[in-house]
Amino acid sequence: MTAEAKAAYKPRNKIRETGVDRAFNAVNYSILAVFLVVILYPLIYVVSASLSDGAAVISGRVVLWPVDFSLVAYQKIFAYERVWTGYGNSLFYAVVGTLVNVTMTLIAAYPLSRRDLPGRNIILGLFLFTLFFSGGLIPTYLLVKDLGLRNTRWALIIPQALSIWNLLIAITFMRTSIPHELLEASQLDGCSDFQYFTRILLPLSTPLIAVLALFYAIGHWNQFFAALLYLTNKDLFPLQIILRDILISSQVDMNMMEDLQSMAAREAMRELLKYALIVVASVPVLIIYPFAQRYFVKGIMLGSVKG
């Protein structure tokens, strides 16, 4: 609250702003406006292109808004099974993975946030060291392989069960946002550490849990590398692998094109499909974005308070 109040408070100039300041403001606003357009334009273009006719897209007639409105690309994508398998798998990884992540983060963060825990600094040090040094890709891959996790869904969940950055956010939250007196009072009342954790700490940590869940869920949804490393079974592929095949390797299934006769029409459809697929893949993130944005900002601030 105090931070927000401070931000809202700007010294009120009773005296008119000087010429330098007015020039500064004009330049400041102009640069930020240009920046806004540069960020926004590609996003609008993708959506417009996906809603246009393929011929209009590849001839450059789409500038800002859809030209010759058409939903044909979306119809084809909705009929394409691989995209749906990928969607389902990604949803599974995001939901189950996030549950595991949040649980692990909370049970690690609570003891480490207690200053009276003997050995706390050593254990925390063990966690922090891994931020700056790792055994590397190959030993990690061999470990996952030896544990028999390759080509199972767990390969995308267990090796990434905990993010140390998120653990730091959780520890900071528990130290700064939950009054220390609560612990002392509950201990006087004979409350055990388990009881304090489940009955007092967790209910007070809902903003933290929201932040963690969002960070982790977006991470899982956008995850590509682990799937590339550990999965060869097509039934387990998350959406990002399928997107890679279509968007980057340009492997478009010919069944999607069989009704199109000319080469030109096929080429136009291929481009159109890519734009529509980018939109379809980003929909889940776009839906939660307005709501998520606030929490992400909060999370970053939590991490920066005493990181």
Binding site: I39, N222, F224, L247, I248, V285, Y289, A292
Partner: peptide, 17 residues
């Protein structure tokens, strides 16, 4: 609001773009 949005795009989609 607008400038935070691209952060949420996955790397695969970003490279596709």
């Amino acid at each position: 609001m607008v400038s935070y949005a691209p952060y949420f795009i996955s790397t695969v989609v970003m490279v596709g773009l």
